[in-house]
Computed example of a mutant assay.
Amino acid sequence: MTTTTTTTATGLSEDQVLEIMHGLPAVDWDDLEAAHEITSQVAHRIGDDRALLRALVDRVPGVEALRQKCEIHTLDDKIVIWDAPDKGLRIRLRLANVKQYERVHNHRFSFTAYLLHGKYYHTMYATDQPLDETADVTRFWPRFVREERAGDVLTLHHNQLHTTLTDPDTISLMIQSPAQKRRAFMIRKSDGHVWWRLGAADEDEARKQEIRMSDERFAHWRARLAELDLL
């Protein structure tokens, strides 16, 4: 059998990229402290290596399973660059496209975020009430407030309530666990409106098409990442 090895403009071949990525360690997300240690190393391995990150972004259009996971949303977009659920490693870029408003929320998954560009204005919250449509927005209390800057790495449990206000072009490398629940809670601080973020398995086809990232939008972010000297 003959294998054709394609070398990208980065100088890394597909085989070299796969060798690096398949060699990443598995993550036990049940031990959040240990998960932070491992995912911090993984985040730096990818985020600090422009050639590798560029190769990962550039291969996405040719990997349909990844391309289908690239999405646009009101506040930020995402490009999934690697997905290894057996190792607890879904790796993506979070791309802030507008100045954001405060929405206290949790996640369906635990995650580590490595800020590559921009800032998070980060607040963690506590509450004493059920997280459902009856939630009172005045009963979410800030417990921890800090500014996360480019170069910082943070790991968060999927049940932690928080807000991350960002400016446009705040870019982070996200490493997330497999989903721990089917929906994530969100409440808008300005008016108390509650809604839920669902996973792909629970979204209808119309919603999937609505949030699917177009080729033009992908090209925009590819160019913007290069302009910001992240690739």
Rank of each mutant, 00 (worst) to 15 (best):
T7M: 05
T10F: 07
T10V: 07
T10H: 03
G11A: 02
L12S: 06
E14R: 09
V17P: 00
V17E: 06
H22I: 00
G23T: 09
D28C: 11
D30L: 11
D30T: 14
A34S: 15
A35H: 11
H36F: 11
T39H: 14
I46Y: 13
D48T: 09
D49F: 15
R50S: 15
A51R: 15
A55V: 08
A55S: 15
V57T: 08
D58L: 10
D58K: 05
R59K: 11
G62M: 07
E64H: 13
A65Q: 11
L66V: 12
Q68C: 01
H73Q: 08
T74V: 10
K78S: 10
I81L: 12
I81G: 02
I81N: 03
W82C: 05
R92H: 09
R94C: 06
L95H: 02
V98A: 07
Q100C: 03
R103W: 02
V104G: 02
H107A: 05
R108Y: 00
A113G: 08
Y114G: 01
Y114T: 04
L116F: 11
K119V: 09
Y120W: 15
H122F: 14
T127Y: 08
D128Y: 12
Q129R: 02
P130R: 13
D132G: 08
A135I: 06
D136Y: 05
R139F: 01
W141G: 00
P142M: 04
F144Q: 08
V145Y: 00
G151Q: 07
G151E: 06
D152V: 04
L154R: 11
T155K: 03
H157N: 15
Q160V: 15
Q160R: 15
H162A: 04
L165F: 09
L173P: 08
M174D: 12
Q176M: 13
Q176W: 09
A179H: 10
Q180H: 10
Q180T: 06
Q180M: 12
F185P: 02
M186R: 15
M186I: 05
H193D: 05
R197L: 07
R197N: 08
A200W: 09
E203P: 00
D204V: 03
D204E: 01
A206D: 13
A206H: 13
E210T: 12
R217P: 01
R224P: 03
L225R: 06
L225I: 12
L231D: 03
